[in-house]
Design a protein around this nucleic acid. Sequence first.
DNA 1: GTAATCTGCAACCTAAAGGTTGCATATCAT
DNA 2: ATGATATGCAACCTTTAGGTTGCAGATTAC
Lengths: 110, 110
Amino acid sequence: MSARSRKSPAEVFAALGDETRLLLVARLSGSGPMSIARLTAGASVTRQAVTKHLHVLAKAGLVRGMRQGREQLWELDPRQLQEARRNLELISRHWDSALDRLRAAVEGQD
Amino acid sequence: MSARSRKSPAEVFAALGDETRLLLVARLSGSGPMSIARLTAGASVTRQAVTKHLHVLAKAGLVRGMRQGREQLWELDPRQLQEARRNLELISRHWDSALDRLRAAVEGQD
DNA sequence: GTAATCTGCAACCTAAAGGTTGCATATCAT
DNA sequence: ATGATATGCAACCTTTAGGTTGCAGATTAC
């Protein structure tokens, strides 16, 4: 149940559907791997909460952790991130056609 | 608290982070406005559950409902959808740079 | 070696999510 | 009018999310 299997879009969306996690992703996007302690420093919740959020993100395949000495470093997972990114674009494009369709329908009514 | 105010990305993601809701959005993307009864026909939960999901989507600004006779028709909300779409693309692009950065870091290490 | 740091594990708590059922109400068809 | 449809509202239930605290185990710094 780790980061390797295919993740459903819903799971990825759900993982991103939380302010704290979105913040973690943003911070990891802007720098290299970071320890839990450091990530906690910038968050408004306890270390345990941060840890849990990281695991949620990991389960969705967005980040991955690795041990280094006494600290656990977390970083974005390029592969799953790419896939998530493509999913977002697929949906986005899907909406495009939906919007086109709507527009056409409205114009047709005139 | 209706569809007019600005929605946080997290809220939109959260709204999309559920299989049933994703399905509803997909169905609405593929056709015109649909009544709750009709939407329920394709779902695996009760009408009430569908109604609740629609309200969650509406609160996130993704869909909107309108009354027509005895039925309530739901459709995608073009405006908020556009905005959501742009948010997705922003994040997606943000990830792109993050991935570039990662790639560069790895190459630099060789 | 000892103290300070960084984490993991587990128990526990509260609020919200997701879902159901029952009943009332409005609208449509005949 | 009457029965069938389509919803809305409200109460209720169970599971999960998000968060906390306390304590034990490693690792690192001195």
